[in-house]
Design a protein around this nucleic acid. Structure first.
Lengths: 99, 99
DNA sequence: GATATTGTTCGTATTTTTACGAACTTATTG
DNA sequence: CAATAAGTTCGTAAAAATACGAACAATATC
C-alpha cells in the first residue's frame, strides 16, 4: 500500500539537510576554506584543521553527500571545490527561510 | 597552563550552532509555524506535527537552548515565540556565510 | 476535592555522529 | 622494484540525537 511517508515538505527536508551539513564547526571551516580559494586539496585543509585526516575525509563525505562540495580524484590527490549550483540552492532556501 | 582550546572562531561555532538547530525537519517546521503566526502553544504545534508531545518538548528545548525561540510558561499552557534578536543574528551569520 | 487539560520530565531503546589509528590504494619518485 | 606521498576505507569506541510512553506537575473546572 506504500504509505508514501510525506511527513514534511521537500522544502523542509532540504533546508534541514543543508543546515545539518553546516551544523558542525569543522564543516563550516572546510566550506570557508573552499569558498575563499575556489578549490583545494585534502592536505591543504588537513594542515589547517585540528583533526585526523581520516576524520577530515569523513566530514568531506558528509559535505559531498549533502551536495555542497564536489571532489575531483586524481590519485593520490583529491581536489575539492564548492558545488556552486547546490551552494546557491542552499543559500536561496535559507534566505527564504529567514524571510 | 590552560590551553584555551580555541580550535574554531566564535563565528564558526555560532554558525554551526544555529545551523545545527535548523538541521532537523521537525525543528524547521516548528520555526515555520512560529514565524507564520508570531507565537503559538505547544498544543497547536503538536496538532500539526507527526511526533509525540514529549518529542515535541524535546525539540522545543533544543530551539530554546540555541536561542532561536523563547517560551512563556503559564501552566498548564506554554506559549512559544521566535526570539527575534537571535533570529536576526542567525540570519545575518548565515547570509554572511553564503556571502 | 476529584477530574480534566496542557505540558514537562524521566527512563529507555535505537540510531547517528564524531573521532581515531591501522591498513589499504594509487600513482610518483628514488 | 622499493619507498614515499596523499587520501580513503575499515574497525571501533564514545557521545549525542531522536523517539516513545509512562509518570508527574500545575492550573482550571465539575
Amino acid at each position: 500500500m506504500a504509505v508514501t511517508k510525506e511527513k514534511f515538505t521537500v522544502n523542509q527536508e532540504l533546508i534541514a539537510q543543508f543546515a545539518n551539513a553546516l551544523g558542525n564547526p569543522v564543516r563550516v571551516s572546510i566550506l570557508q576554506l573552499l569558498s575563499k580559494q575556489s578549490c583545494c586539496y585534502h592536505g591543504d585543509m588537513a594542515g589547517e584543521l585540528p583533526i585526523a585526516k581520516s576524520t577530515l575525509s569523513q566530514h568531506l563525505k558528509v559535505l559531498l553527500e549533502a551536495g555542497l562540495i564536489q571532489g575531483e580524484i586524481t590519485p593520490p590527490k583529491t581536489k575539492y571545490c564548492i558545488n556552486r549550483a547546490n551552494w546557491n540552492l542552499a543559500k536561496g532556501l535559507l534566505i527564504g527561510f529567514f524571510h
